[in-house]
Amino acid sequence: MTTHFVNLLEELRRRSARMASLVEDMFQEACESVIDTNDALADRVIRRDNEVDSEEVAIESEVIRLMALYQPVGSDLRLLCAILKINNDLERIADCAVNVAERARHLEKDALSCHRDTITDMGKFVGSMLRNAVQSFAIEDIGLARKAFSEDERIDALYEQTIKKIVAEGATSSEGMAARLDVLSVAKNLERIADHATNIAEDVIFLSTGEIVRHTDNVSHLAGG
């Protein structure tokens, strides 16, 4: 019975890691679709959301089933709780990626010109953070989870910078306001993805240590290593 349960648990962990990988791909393609204003890529991201949604439900159902049938404790309980919470964050990241892709379809070719560098940088940093968070879950590595924390402040700063720039542009000219709002929406969604990646990193800390570091000073402590 125990071997059977351990196998089911490992299969679920792999399934969750596969979903994380799918969501990471969606994120990368969503960023590319904005930066290159590539409608075809944006459509592909939007289409893949259904796959993530059904996988989210399937994983959640399996977590509930295993909890009900095996009443896990200790590290098994922590793994199932982490999978359940990470599952939710992954689905939300996919939703944000879809939002970014939808903005990409609205954007005209030149609309991004003066924000391209900021959005590219944000995409790069968020991508690195998400990769570290997802990888930290896949191999249960606290060091990578800490690295993910450390990138959040830089992303917040870039987001603030984008807002200020857009507000300043709006003050000098009312033309292109719709495009600026699209850019703002992209930046906002990237910032939200970083927040979800932080949640995933926090869940990896819980998975590994049993400590809940959310809303505590421990997060900054952990971020510092």
Binding site: T2, V73, G74
Partner: peptide, 14 residues
């Protein structure tokens, strides 16, 4: 039952 300190406890309860 959530975060035992000893590996042997962890192995037994799971």
């Amino acid at each position: 039952f959530t975060k035992p300190n000893q590996q042997r406890t962890q192995d037994y309860i799971t």
